[in-house]
Structures are given as C-alpha cells and as structure tokens.
Design a protein around this nucleic acid. Structure first.
Length: 460
DNA sequence: TGAAATGTTGGGGCG
DNA sequence: ACGCCCCAACATTTC
C-alpha cells in the first residue's frame, strides 16, 4: 500500500476528519507546516499562534498515542511538500479544504507542482456544506443570512460524524521541534490564557460536553449576557482550528434535547454563512462588499484607535470587552458588537483597523467570520446592520450587564460604583479617579456617525 | 443581533 | 362636576 501524506492545516483533530479517513487507506505521514509567507497579512495573529502551539502539542500527543509522529516544518509549503512527496514516494496528499483566498491559491500552485504519481486531494471537514454547492433558486450565492439559514435547515441533518480511523505509521522523516516553529510570544502577555483555555481535540470535547442541555435551553436568552458563565459555548477557537467539526457540534446539540438548540445552531450557521461569503467574495477581508463604502469618510486617528485597543474609552462596557480580549484572547459576542460599533460609528475609525486588532488578539480569529462580522457592523457587508443602528454603550451595558458583574470584573476602576452609575461613571456624584472621561460624548458621536452615513447616501 | 424622536392615549391633579 | 393640563406609558416613525 502506498504512503499518504496528511497535511494538517486548520483541522487539528483525529475524529470526524474525512481527509484522515481517506489517508488511512495506507500508511500515513502527518505533517503541519508553518507557512506565513503564503498567508501574507493573514498569517496567524499573535493570540492564534499561542493557541496553535498548544493545539499542535495536543495533536502530536494524540498521534503518538496511535504510533504516528507529527512532522513539523516551517517555510514554503508548496516547495516543502513537493520535496516531501518526492522523497517519501507518497501517492497522495490529503487535506481538509480551506476557504481563504491565499490558501486556495496555494493549493492550486501545489497541485501543479507535485511530481507525477502524487496528487493533492481536498476533503470537506471545516464546514457543514461546501460553499460552491449552496445556491439560491436563481442559481446565485446567498447574499442574505436568513434565507441562507433556511436553505441549510431545509437540507436536513448533516451526516453523523466519523470515528477515528485505524492508523498505520509511514516511515519517519526529519522535522523540527515544536518550539522551533516559534509560535509562542516573546513577552508574557499570554500568561493568563492557560487559565481560560485548553487547546486541542480533548479540550474541545470537554468544552462541548460542558455546554449541556440546560445551557442550550437557556441559550436564546443567556447568550446575550456577558457576565453569565456558560451562557455561550466557548467553542469558537476550537472550531477555528478544527479541533472539533461543526457537524460534531450540530449532532451534540441535537442530542442534548429537543428544545433550545435552534438559536445555537443558527450561530453555527453564521459561521457557515461567513465562509460562504468569503468563498464567493474573496475580497471581503480587505474591501467593503458594498462599493459605495469605498468613499466613506472615515477619520483615522491613532489616539482614538489606541484608546479603544487599550480599553480606555471611558465607557465601561466597551473597556471591559477590550480588556477581556487582551487578557484572555476572547471577547463575548454581545460585547464584540458593542465595541465594534463604538469604534466604527462613535470614533469613525475604518473597520479594517478593528478587524486587524481582533485578528491579532483573538484566539478564535477566523478570516471569514472576522471580516464578515466587521463588515456587518460597519454596514458595508452583504447583509449588514443598517447604517443608523448605533449601539448606545450606556444602554447596552445597563441592558445586558445589569448587575455589572462583567464590567466590574474587567474594569476595577469603576467596580465600586453602584449599579445606577456603573455604565455612566461621569454622572456619579464622585466619578472614580484614574478612569478616563469618555473619549467622545455619546450624542455627539452618534450624530457625527449619522451625518457621515448620510453624506455617503447622498453621494451614492 | 437599536436608539431616539415623535405621536397617542388615558389617568389624575387641580382650578 | 367639569374641563384643562401634565405626563407616564405605550406605540409608531425616523434616523
């Protein structure tokens, strides 16, 4: 039987892995390659690199338990794999399909470069459905989420997940030590991460198991409360690195009980929809999907951007979110909407600047989901929030963090305030010292944003 | 997966 | 007792 290379990329799991199943027809040589040059600006951000390091350690351990050694390499994946295929005599390279434009280009180049007798075989795995297979009745890609989700639900249940196949090791090849991939940060900013996360397939399964039937039943309401432990699944980074598949998550949610999972499954489909959009609109990470926004009057201002990044805007719910992001590599989804709206609308900063910061700081940074979500907030996306929807950070804080548990946890400067003033500390009888006044007054910021959007509409 | 402005209604205070 | 006004409370419209 001939050797198969399994190229692990963003699908760092052994269970429900169609590419691994295909490769397991013969001896398997598993490989991971750090290839930043191919990804360009969208190479893994710093927080993702931390996650990736530990996820690779977990994957390596899982493979070793089955007698296989994960080959680690660094550099040009096309050149390295072409060489590896020639040296090892492999008949195929199996991998899960990627949807990032840069990755699609690299796969095309690799397929051309491989020696005769070795083919590149791409499999599904990261998504429930391949984006090129989903079309409207008119034959077009979906541009609006709701009909897209309806179409996916109408397709019925996805197939059951695959088990881990029986594996036979191929001949070993010389590779790098995990540390030589240089994924861990030089400075100590990630020291708090291990208390929050367990990267890897085992950690993903544990996280899924913890998100139980009661949590699912309460999900429709609790997912909006950032101070509610277990209100959300916390699976985003595990999904981003493919430590768990969407159909594993789907079937687990179904199995947990009849009531509840629909809202949760719709969130899984937002991820699906983002990949759908990226597949059909590869410019999405850089350019607004609505052309009129090319002329939007953003007002880039390094001081505003920095105040937002550091969690010093003077709005407690915004600052809580930005500090949670920095400290843990993750931010609650409700707060992502609030902070993103604040940057783009109140501060009039280009959405690409927020996208770039999230990309560098989120452990779950996913090109499709991140860019689609920023465009959604900015109002320039395919199925975007209307331009006039401006989140009021005071009202959002009072509505979704009413008891203030979340805000107090991340913004100690205001922790001593009563609930009445927690989300508007400048109105307190004694505003806390050491906490900044709002970088912009809400009503003024809102009015300025509406004027900017109105100008755009007039020009269009 | 908003918020604010504007419009409507109806109860109660008060002359 | 009656009419007038005020203003919550809710609904609708607009940004």
């Amino acid at each position: 039987m001939t050797l198969n290379i399994l190229w692990f990329r963003q699908d760092l799991r052994l269970a429900d892995n169609p590419a691994l199943h295909a490769a397991a027809s013969g001896p398997v040589l598993p490989v991971f390659i750090r290839d930043d040059a191919a990804a360009g600006a969208w190479a893994h951000g710093a927080a993702q690199r931390w996650w990736l390091h530990h996820s690779l350690a977990a994957l390596r351990a899982g493979l070793r338990a089955r007698g296989l050694e994960l080959l680690l390499l660094k550099g040009d994946a096309v050149a390295l794999l072409t060489d590896l295929a020639a040296r090892s005599g492999a008949s195929a390279i199996h991998a899960a399909r990627l949807y990032e434009p840069w990755a699609r280009g690299r796969d095309a180049r690799l397929a051309e470069a491989l020696p005769p007798g070795c083919r590149l075989s791409l499999h599904s795995g990261a998504l429930l459905h391949e984006p090129h297979r989903i079309r409207t009745g008119q034959g077009n890609p979906y541009a609006v989420y709701t009909p897209f989700s309806r179409a996916i639900f109408a397709l019925g249940e996805p197939p059951p997940p695959l088990p881990v196949p029986a594996l036979t090791a191929g001949p070993s090849q010389p590779g790098l030590a995990l540390e030589a991939l240089e994924l861990l940060p030089q400075r100590d900013w990630a020291d708090g991460f291990p208390g929050h996360w367990s990267p890897g397939e085992v950690g993903a399964a544990a996280r899924l198991a913890r998100f139980s039937a009661p949590a699912l039943a309460a999900y429709d309401h609790d997912r909006n409360l950032p101070g509610q432990p277990g209100g959300t699944s916390g699976l985003s980074a595990h999904l981003r690195f493919g430590e768990i598949s969407p159909r594993q998550v789907w079937h687990a949610a179904r199995a947990a009980g009849a009531a509840g999972p629909h809202t949760f499954l719709k969130e899984i489909l937002w991820r699906e929809f983002a990949h759908h959009l990226l597949w059909h609109r590869p410019e999405m990470p850089e350019a607004p999907l609505q052309n009129s926004f090319e002329k939007f009057p953003w007002q880039p201002d390094a001081r505003f951007l920095r105040a937002w990044q550091r969690g010093k805007t003077g709005y407690p719910i915004v600052d809580a979110g930005m500090r949670q992001l920095w400290a843990t590599g993750w931010m609650h989804n409700r707060v992502r909407m609030i902070t993103a709206s604040f940057l783009v609308k109140h501060l009039l900063q280009p959405w690409q600047d927020g996208e770039a910061w999230f990309w560098d700081t989120l452990v779950d940074g996913d090109l499709a989901a991140n860019s689609a979500s920023w465009q959604w907030v900015a109002g320039c996306g395919a199925d975007a929030a209307p331009y006039f929807r401006v989140f009021n950070p005071v009202l959002q804080g009072e509505k979704f963090d009413a008891d203030g548990a979340y805000t107090r946890a991340w913004v100690p400067e205001v922790a001593g305030l009563p609930a009445k003033f927690l989300h508007q500390p400048w109105n307190a009888p004694r505003p806390p010292a050491g906490y900044p006044r709002p970088v912009i007054e809400h009503a003024a910021g809102r009015a300025r944003a509406l004027a900017a959007y109105a100008a755009l509409r007039q020009a269009a």
